[in-house]
Amino acid sequence: MAAGGDHGSPDSYRSPLASRYASPEMCFVFSDRYKFRTWRQLWLWLAEAEQTLGLPITDEQIQEMKSNLENIDFKMAAEEEKRLRHDVMAHVHTFGHCCPKAAGIIHLGATSCYVGDNTDLIILRNALDLLLPKLARVISRLADFAKERASLPTLGFTHFQPAQLTTVGKRCCLWIQDLCMDLQNLKRVRDDLRFRGVKGTTGTQASFLQLFEGDDHKVEQLDKMVTEKAGFKRAFIITGQTYTRKVDIEVLSVLASLGASVHKICTDIRLLANLKEMEEPFEKQQIGSSAMPYKRNPMRSERCCSLARHLMTLVMDPLQTASVQWFERTLDDSANRRICLAEAFLTADTILNTLQNISEGLVVYPKVIERRIRQELPFMATENIIMAMVKAGGSRQDCHEKIRVLSQQAASVVKQEGGDNDLIERIQVDAYFSPIHSQLDHLLDPSSFTGRASQQVQRFLEEEVYPLLKPYESVMKVKAELCL
């Protein structure tokens, strides 16, 4: 049975990233139509530049190519590739079939990587351009969430054990800070992308030097003109047959890092959902379990974690691919890159769409948070109580021993009897502590235990987050809708 299948058929496997999760716009960027249309555009740009620099290419040939950029006979191309065992030459023939007058000058002087690699770089750039505003929107939604809850005390956790208090907004800023680093890295790697350009079979530009009869300047002009037509500021000066596969490492490393950030955020949300302090959106008709109707599973956060793990592992592909590119190139890269580049971007696209949807509907339960604080705060307040007693004339050592005994009794009630923490009640009825009984409410005010959390939130948002989001103001209103 021949390899390949009808990918629109229910009898043929289709990647869930495309069929179930990723956005239509990201799927289109990695589609065959987008790819092969870009090949034709690159052939047109090459012909236009070659004509401008004096090669015998007519206006009629150029116009014929322009008129057929979208006229792609995919069936013919597939048949040609089956016959020739070469995808680029299959599309040269297919393009030439609908451009008979231009057929002889299509791909003039070029090698397969002229269309293959340059198209990949265009796709990487455009895919990054799709991700950047999506990530900015996630940051914006979380920034709104953090600002609104900047002063809401909550129990902090280290080692997932109760620690000092923080605020809900401050905790959210930990998430935002990681995503801001990801946004900066995505922008950097996007701006650092260079075009492969017009380089020939081993990167020496020998074929173009021959076409222009040894004119170095025209060869350099050709490279520059096509690079500018493709919208790049610069091209690699040095290439082998391909652009260095280190570029793929750079791009997928940034995406993998984004995956790590999203995994951490969504894990926190899942843990908070278990504590009943916070939940992701839950639709009115949504079913959490087929057997347990009360369940409210954090399905979206779980999906993000599941896909983020996949995204983090994909960076190993370009690392290994770059390491086995012998001399000017081997074909070890080809099949692998067809999979890992598309999957990385479709996965990143999915987790950003999902995280935006989550961040637009996060639900906080202040009463649950308050109750958990009441359970733990008495123990945390013991040092403040000791200091207040010393100020009232008591002995630190005597007070410490009193607190120690009462704390152990209260802990026994919590752990052995399943009761509430009654340390404060014990202190309130103990005559030894009568000098500070009137101060206990103040000493137990949760806001006095959150330090500068709310001020940190305000400063972080104003100095770091809002300036970073400013270039994306025009796209901030787009909502994230999930079908599944």
Rank of each mutant, 00 (worst) to 15 (best):
4 G>I: 15
6 D>V: 11
20 R>T: 01
22 A>L: 10
23 S>C: 08
23 S>D: 15
24 P>I: 15
24 P>T: 14
24 P>E: 11
26 M>F: 04
29 V>C: 12
31 S>H: 06
33 R>G: 09
35 K>Q: 15
35 K>W: 01
37 R>C: 09
39 W>E: 06
42 L>P: 02
43 W>P: 00
44 L>M: 09
45 W>F: 15
50 E>H: 08
57 I>W: 04
58 T>E: 13
58 T>G: 09
60 E>N: 12
60 E>V: 12
60 E>Q: 13
61 Q>G: 12
62 I>F: 06
63 Q>A: 10
70 E>G: 13
71 N>H: 13
74 F>P: 10
74 F>K: 13
77 A>K: 06
83 R>G: 15
83 R>Y: 14
84 L>H: 07
85 R>W: 09
87 D>C: 00
89 M>E: 00
90 A>S: 10
91 H>E: 09
92 V>S: 08
93 H>P: 01
93 H>G: 14
94 T>I: 11
103 A>R: 15
103 A>C: 12
103 A>H: 09
105 I>V: 13
107 H>K: 00
107 H>G: 00
108 L>Y: 10
112 S>F: 02
113 C>Q: 13
113 C>L: 05
114 Y>V: 02
114 Y>K: 00
116 G>F: 02
123 I>E: 07
128 L>I: 12
128 L>M: 11
131 L>A: 15
135 L>Y: 07
137 R>W: 06
140 S>L: 15
143 A>S: 14
144 D>R: 15
145 F>C: 09
147 K>H: 10
148 E>N: 10
149 R>M: 14
151 S>P: 10
154 T>G: 05
155 L>T: 01
156 G>Y: 00
158 T>W: 00
160 F>Y: 13
166 T>I: 08
167 T>G: 04
167 T>L: 01
168 V>D: 01
171 R>P: 04
172 C>T: 14
172 C>N: 06
172 C>I: 08
173 C>I: 03
174 L>Y: 08
177 Q>L: 13
178 D>N: 07
178 D>L: 00
182 D>P: 05
185 N>H: 11
187 K>A: 14
188 R>W: 05
189 V>W: 07
193 L>W: 00
193 L>G: 07
197 G>T: 01
198 V>G: 10
200 G>L: 01
202 T>M: 07
205 Q>L: 06
207 S>G: 14
212 F>D: 04
212 F>Y: 07
213 E>A: 14
213 E>M: 15
215 D>M: 13
218 K>V: 01
218 K>F: 09
219 V>P: 05
221 Q>L: 13
225 M>N: 08
227 T>N: 08
228 E>A: 11
228 E>F: 08
230 A>P: 00
231 G>D: 10
231 G>N: 10
232 F>V: 03
236 F>N: 06
239 T>L: 07
242 T>I: 09
244 T>A: 13
245 R>Y: 01
245 R>Q: 09
247 V>D: 07
250 E>S: 12
251 V>K: 00
252 L>A: 14
253 S>R: 05
257 S>N: 09
262 V>C: 15
264 K>D: 05
265 I>S: 12
265 I>R: 02
267 T>G: 13
267 T>Y: 04
267 T>K: 03
269 I>P: 02
270 R>N: 03
275 L>G: 06
276 K>M: 06
276 K>V: 05
276 K>T: 07
276 K>Q: 05
279 E>I: 02
281 P>G: 09
284 K>Q: 13
290 S>Y: 04
291 A>F: 04
291 A>D: 02
293 P>C: 05
294 Y>F: 07
294 Y>L: 03
296 R>M: 11
297 N>I: 01
298 P>A: 14
299 M>F: 06
300 R>H: 13
301 S>L: 15
303 R>L: 02
305 C>T: 09
306 S>N: 01
310 H>R: 14
315 V>I: 13
315 V>C: 12
316 M>L: 13
321 T>H: 00
322 A>Q: 12
324 V>M: 10
324 V>N: 11
326 W>S: 05
327 F>V: 12
329 R>W: 01
330 T>F: 01
331 L>T: 02
333 D>A: 03
333 D>S: 00
335 A>R: 02
336 N>L: 13
336 N>E: 03
336 N>K: 04
338 R>F: 00
338 R>T: 03
338 R>M: 03
338 R>L: 01
340 C>S: 13
340 C>P: 00
343 E>P: 11
344 A>Y: 04
345 F>W: 03
347 T>G: 12
348 A>D: 03
349 D>R: 04
350 T>V: 15
351 I>G: 02
353 N>D: 12
355 L>V: 12
356 Q>W: 11
356 Q>P: 03
358 I>R: 00
358 I>V: 11
359 S>N: 11
360 E>Y: 06
360 E>L: 07
363 V>K: 05
363 V>S: 03
366 P>G: 05
367 K>T: 02
372 R>D: 03
372 R>I: 06
376 E>L: 03
380 M>A: 02
382 T>F: 03
384 N>V: 10
387 M>L: 11
387 M>D: 02
388 A>S: 08
389 M>R: 09
391 K>Q: 14
391 K>R: 14
392 A>H: 12
395 S>W: 06
398 D>F: 10
398 D>A: 14
398 D>E: 10
400 H>Q: 03
401 E>S: 12
402 K>I: 08
403 I>Q: 05
406 L>H: 15
408 Q>K: 14
412 S>W: 14
413 V>R: 12
413 V>K: 11
416 Q>P: 03
418 G>I: 03
418 G>L: 04
418 G>E: 01
429 V>P: 03
433 F>E: 03
435 P>V: 07
440 L>V: 10
441 D>W: 08
443 L>N: 04
446 P>T: 06
447 S>A: 14
449 F>R: 07
455 Q>D: 07
455 Q>R: 14
458 Q>M: 12
460 F>H: 07
461 L>Q: 04
462 E>W: 13
463 E>I: 10
464 E>H: 05
464 E>A: 07
465 V>Y: 03
467 P>R: 09
470 K>Y: 15
471 P>E: 15
473 E>Y: 13
474 S>R: 15
475 V>C: 12
482 L>K: 06
483 C>W: 08
483 C>F: 10
484 L>I: 10
